[in-house]
Design a binder for these strands. Structure first.
Length: 967
DNA sequence: TCTCTGCAAAGAGGA
């Protein structure tokens, strides 16, 4: 029987006398959720289970059975607490008695946590049914929180190590880089690749990292060769004796136990873990056994029990065998019994429970001997800065109270985001294939069209897409390829190569390609967390003084925001605001903010700023949230004549025309490291800025574009690499995308025009960008680019008034007066409804879900009318708030149709906006007016708004929009 | 029922 639900009460552990002696016991009361209370493998329980069975206590010896009467009657204890049998459970809750080692649960459980107990036993006493753990039971706390196997391993070593790794990230160091190479070579060997070829290529691929570590390739190859010799010897031994069934890099997710991870290899279904180090003891290290056992636990859940684990200590080589005592064979096998598996479950519970309240963990060192710990320094620094107790001791002074508060606040927000990622994982098994497809998170019903082994032993899989199915998946993405069931079936982590009618992916092992799923990643939250750590715990005190409001930002030669051009040569002719922006960026001793509304030449200004900085011999980091924005800015800089630039990023992230300056990671270590270190301009996404390699770099100035779309910790990842920074953005356009958003903020209009008349603070700290926070705190450190080169006067008027206090103006008369006739369009041929450059059309449609088919029809007609009048279809764009409506309209026209979010950053001569809504305008998509600002300001010469007039009149903001459009 | 881009991910070690 299986029990799942929220904990409503946690009892104390206590000893009871049974006829088999003294036993420990504890109770939890749980409110079952949904079908939480079900027999294993069945549906709902109708209460007809076998009542004659006795509750069993168990621990080491496993099978002790309590007599019914003796067991229950002895439960009355000295505390005067009610016994399980006496307590009424008529309120819909269920009481679970935990015996023996599962009393561990109550040491960590808290009210509100989710509990999952499997194989629990049911018994009856005085007419009431009670439940208890038995010999096969396992109890899981917060099963929805996915703990990584490597995290369980480090927690077993020392709980502090778990969150030190989490907070500070694992820095670039040689053992890790070499370990990764050895693991890759191991995988290659399993795929029958030539050893020398593999070593050559894998060491070459790690060139950049090895170079930054000052390592020589020959020396590394020799070392890896020694590890590989141990692997090869062992592999040969295995194949000589009996038939071997191998597979490498196995991705495992456990819905029941809340564990995910990747096993190095499976041999005849048994987990094999490769270790680069040496272990001269007869027994494997305990934490290593736990790691292998964790994989075995997940395998068992999939119905493939593994009773043996193998640890391969590849530094245990024959050469050293003579010199040292002890057991130096590389492979150590051990048996994986229930006791070990239970231990894994309990250890995972400790982590999940510690993470439950989403606060900064303090941790403890358990029995660890700190003097041998490689993490000792980090440990002492973190303890010192956060003023935590630590066996290792503390270094440095605690950060001030307000910084600690900031750290905790953002830690919580980032962790909330992590839960959202975990929720995405859960959808892999909680949603049906059809629901996943409906959600655009999976391509299902693929027809396998052949698998082919590649030269390097990896596999290329092909499949045919049955229909015109769409999804969030894109070429170049990492995804989960499966035979149709990504959790219980066969699944492989793959890279999408092609995503047309033919679907092509590559993976380490072959799979029958019937389904492709979005595979969530925690890397984004991990990097925000390390950026937060670097800023608060290791950041420059001078900078923190400004960012924590203890002093004003400073500029060379006084306050540049007040000074004009003076006598100097202008950086930019004919645009005073742009010129002043460059001046401020150059003069900034802390930071400068460039506020660039739509069409105001942000990218051009960025190029001027970078040029001015490079002229002064400054090393510049150019960053933005998206690859697209990074490449746009980089393009402008190169057009400005700055060619000594390096683009850091993945091959499929970097735009094709920037690949020529992309930093190759593979190659000679010294040369690769120099290519990065010596580049005067380095461009990378903020996420890449948080990578190990980039964290080794330092810059004079970081310039971050689209900074208003970045979370504060996301911005910090780039900013922390430089002495000073420049943020370019527009907080009146789209804010950062945050998944765990709680309630969204309301109106962003400075005119304070939200329905409630108030502007609620965002519920989630990540929803306010650092750009927005700083521009509100230090307006004097910002420049507003107030001349726009995109929209006609008529089009820009509403946006200027509502969002920029009327400060936004056309750059010149030509911009202001532009019309469709400039394009050779016969305006007279347009229907009267589209006669004005800003038009409103009410098609009298009906919202159906997130679509409005009638409105979609009308939008298509309007597009056709523009085209018929002579507008080039490439010059027309359609914007809708929902993806569903985007698809609906897309079926009716060939012009570009997209969501607001995806349209940000681009513009069209003609824009048609579909509002969809026909009754209330509730829903976050309509409540954040910044989204409307973006939609309206994509248009240059003509804008057609298509929506329901009555619905739009219900909100003052939209009513003003209507008035303007229908003028 | 909202919008969605980054990330190969996980990788190590000693008395």
């Amino acid at each position: 029987m299986k029990l799942r639900g929220r904990i409503v009460d946690v009892g104390d552990e206590r000893e009871v006398e049974t006829k088999y002696g003294s036993r420990s016991l504890a109770e939890v009361t749980v409110r079952p959720e949904g079908d939480g209370w079900v027999p294993d493998g069945g549906q709902t329980d109708s209460g007809d289970a076998d009542h004659g069975r006795a509750a069993r206590g168990e621990d080491g010896d496993g099978q002790t059975t309590l007599g019914d009467a003796d067991g229950e009657t002895s439960l009355s204890d000295a505390d005067g607490e009610t016994t399980p049998a006496e307590r009424d459970t008529g309120d819909g809750t269920v009481r679970l008695t935990l015996w023996g080692k599962w009393t561990h649960t109550v040491e960590h459980a808290e009210v509100g946590m989710e509990l999952l107990a499997i194989d629990v036993e049911e018994s009856e006493y005085r007419g009431e049914t009670t439940y208890a753990t038995g010999g096969d039971s396992r109890v899981v706390l917060e099963p929805g929180f996915l703990v990584d196997v490597t995290d369980i391993r480090s927690w077993v070593q020392c709980p502090r190590m778990y969150y030190l790794n989490k907070l500070s990230g694992i820095p670039l160091n040689y053992p890790v880089v070499k370990g990764t190479i050895v693991h890759e070579v191991f995988g290659d060997l399993l795929r029958d690749r030539d050893l020398e070829d593999s070593i050559d290529e894998r060491v070459r691929e790690a060139g950049l990292e090895l170079g930054l570590l000052g390592r020589d390739a020959d020396e590394v190859r020799d070392e890896v060769r020694r590890n590989a010799a141990a692997i090869e010897g062992w592999l040969q031994q295995g194949t000589l004796t009996e038939e071997d069934a191998w597979r490498s890099e196995y991705t495992l997710i456990s819905p029941t136990f809340g564990i995910k991870g990747r096993a190095d290899a499976l041999r005849r279904g048994m987990p094999v873990e490769l270790k680069t180090g040496k272990n001269t003891n007869r027994e494997p290290r305990f934490q290593d056994k736990i790691q292998a056992a964790a994989y075995a636990l997940v395998l068992a859940e999939r119905g493939v029990p593994a009773d043996t684990g193998t640890l391969l200590y590849t530094k245990n080589t024959a050469l050293e065998r003579h010199e040292e005592s002890g057991d130096l064979s590389p492979a150590k096998e051990f048996s994986i019994g229930d006791g070990l598996l239970d231990f894994v479950v309990r250890t995972r519970n400790e982590i999940a429970a510690m993470e439950f309240d989403v606060s900064v963990p303090t941790g403890y060192e358990a029995d660890a001997r700190c003097e041998y710990c490689f993490e000792q320094d980090t440990c002492m620094v973190v303890s010192g800065r956060l003023d935590q107790e630590s066996k290792a001791g503390q270094i440095g002074e605690a950060v001030p109270e307000d910084e600690l508060e900031y750290f905790e606040r953002f830690y919580r927000a980032i962790e909330a985001e992590r839960r959202a990622v975990h929720a995405e994982y859960r959808k892999l098994w909680e949603q049906s294939a059809e629901e996943r497809a409906e959600d655009d998170r999976a391509l299902i019903g693929l027809e396998p069209a052949g698998n082919e082994e590649l030269d390097d032993g990896r596999w290329e899989m092909r499949a045919r897409k049955s229909d015109d199915a769409v999804s969030k998946l894109r070429e170049g993405d990492v995804a989960l390829a499966s035979d149709g069931d990504p959790v219980d079936g066969h699944a492989e982590l793959c890279r999408i190569r092609e995503l047309g009618e033919a679907v092509v992916v590559t993976a380490d092992e072959p799979v029958s390609l019937r389904r492709l799923d979005v595979y969530p990643s925690e890397i984004g939250v991990d990097r925000m967390l390390t950026a937060l750590h670097d800023f608060v715990l290791k950041g420059d005190p001078d900078r923190k003084d400004v960012l924590f409001g203890r002093r004003e930002p400073e500029f060379a030669d006084g306050d540049a925001s007040e000074g004009g051009e003076g006598d100097r040569e202008p950086y930019v002719d004919n645009n005073a605001a742009q010129d002043r922006a460059v001046q401020m960026a150059v003069d900034a001793e802390d930071f400068a903010l460039v506020h660039g509304p739509p069409g105001t030449g942000k990218t051009y200004t960025i190029a001027q700023i970078v040029a001015a900085l490079v002229d002064r011999g400054q090393r510049v980091l150019l960053s933005a949230f998206t690859n697209r924005a990074v490449d746009n800015a980089l393009e402008a800089i190169r057009e400005r004549g700055i060619d000594d630039v390096v683009r850091v990023g993945t091959e499929n992230g970097v735009r094709e025309d920037m690949l020529d300056v992309r930093l190759e990671r593979g190659g000679d270590p010294n040369e690769r490291a120099a290519a990065l270190r010596d580049a005067p301009v380095v461009a990378a996404t903020t996420s890449t800025c948080g990578s190990r390699v980039m964290r080794e770099n330092a810059f004079d100035v970081a310039l971050v574009d689209e900074a208003s779309q970045l979370t504060e910790p996301g911005t910090l990842a780039a900013v922390e690499l430089a002495d000073r920074f420049v943020l370019v953005g527009d907080h009146e356009q789209l804010p950062p995308v945050v998944q765990a958003s709680g309630t969204q903020r309301g109106a962003a209009s400075p005119n304070g025009s939200s329905a409630s008349g108030e502007e609620p603070r965002p519920a989630n700290d990540l929803q306010t960008s650092l750009f927005e926070r700083l521009i509100e705190t230090y307006p004097d450190a910002s420049v507003l680019l107030d001349r726009q080169y995109r929209m006609s006067q008529r089009i820009q008027a509403f946006s200027s008034r509502e969002f920029y206090d009327g400060a936004l103006r056309p750059a010149n008369g030509a911009v202001a007066a532009q019309r469709l006739s400039d394009l050779g369009v016969d305006e007279g041929a347009l229907p009267p409804a589209l006669g004005d450059p800003v038009a409103f059309v009410d098609p009298d449609g009906e919202r159906v879900g997130n679509t409005n088919p009638t409105e979609a029809d009308r939008v298509a007609e309007i597009v056709d009318a523009y085209v018929a009048a002579g507008v080039d279809p490439d010059d027309v764009g359609v914007i809708a708030p929902f993806r569903a409506q985007v698809a609906e309209i897309g079926r009716r026209t060939d012009v570009t149709v997209d969501t607001v979010d995806r349209f940000q950053g681009s513009a069209k001569e003609v824009i048609v906006v579909s509002f969809v809504a026909t009754d209330a305008l509730d829903g976050p998509i309509f409540e954040d007016y910044r989204r409307i600002n973006v939609a309206l300001t994509r248009a240059k010469k003509a804008l057609a708004l298509v929506g329901d007039a009555e619905a739009l009149s219900t909100e003052p903001f939209y009513e003003r929009l209507l008035d303007w459009a229908r003028r």
